[in-house]
């Protein structure tokens, strides 16, 4: 139970500790109520982007899995993160959004079985399976499966990052010492059951209501896997 509370508390504590350095920041929309009415699910086409990249990763139980095994005919949301990330509008935002999605979708037993959330660390040195356990055990009783992943080495991770164009830059001080932060652009990928990327969300677009709408669009009978079959009357 302590681990569960730790996980739930983690986001706001990390975020509040850092807020003073973001005085020129605009808080990302994903932290708040969506400020517009999103288009109705199933009424729009999600473009089909190139196939999602495959590669081997390690879960919090130290099991080696391929990403394609994890996609497993489910609709997948994949984000890249590192657990010591302190950017309010970075990894903590994605984790918070996934948490909200998990809470909302778990109320729908049919929908929840078709969805998987994956958070893949790009800091394998620090984010070991044991560290990721702290996160995974906080989510394990929900209907929507959420797995925390890492890699056995930067060499195995690099092709995956390249495939998703998830660029990372380790930051160093003036003396060349690594300061523990990794600059990156927040990206979350929506991957359909055929392993195609169907949407990419960054800070300004990442909101649980929008992501859930897109998931429902992929499953909506008015679409064929997210492509609108018949043009609406208007």
């Amino acid at each position: 139970m302590f681990k569960k509370i730790l996980f739930i508390c983690l986001l706001p504590l990390v975020a509040s500790a850092q807020e003073t350095i973001y005085d020129s920041f605009v808080l990302a929309p994903g932290w708040t109520k969506l400020s517009f009415i999103p288009p109705e699910s199933g009424t729009y086409t999600l473009p089909t982007y190139p196939k999602a990249t495959n590669g081997n990763v390690i879960n919090h139980k130290s099991e080696v899995k391929s990403l394609y095994q994890l996609y497993d005919n489910k609709i997948t949301l994949l984000n890249f993160m590192y657990t010591t990330c302190t950017d309010i509008n970075g990894c903590p935002l994605a984790t918070a959004v996934f948490h909200k999605i998990q809470q909302k979708v778990s109320k729908d037993p049919v929908l929840s079985k078709k969805i998987r959330l994956l958070s893949l660390s790009f800091d394998p040195k620090n984010d070991t399976p044991d560290v990721l356990k702290l996160y995974a055990t906080g989510t394990d009783k929900q209907l929507v499966d959420w797995q925390f992943l890492t890699s056995s080495s930067p060499e195995l991770l690099d092709p995956i990052l390249r495939g998703y164009q998830q660029r990372i830059v380790k930051e160093y001080d003036e003396n060349g010492n690594y300061i523990g932060s990794i600059s990156h652009i927040l990206r979350v990928f929506l991957i359909d059951q055929e392993k195609n990327v169907r949407n990419i969300y960054s800070v300004s677009f990442l909101h649980p209501d929008l992501l859930i709408n897109d998931i429902k669009t992929l499953l909506d009978p008015k679409t064929k896997n997210g492509t609108v079959i018949a043009r609406s009357a208007n």
């Binding site: 706001p12 975020a15 509040s16 807020e19 973001y22 005085d23 020129s24 920041f25 605009v26 808080l27 932290w31 708040t32 309010i88």
Partner: peptide, 11 residues
């Protein structure tokens, strides 16, 4: 609490 702190006017 976090939002109350973080949602200060930004410029």
């Amino acid at each position: 609490a976090f939002l109350a702190v973080a949602l200060v006017p930004t410029q």
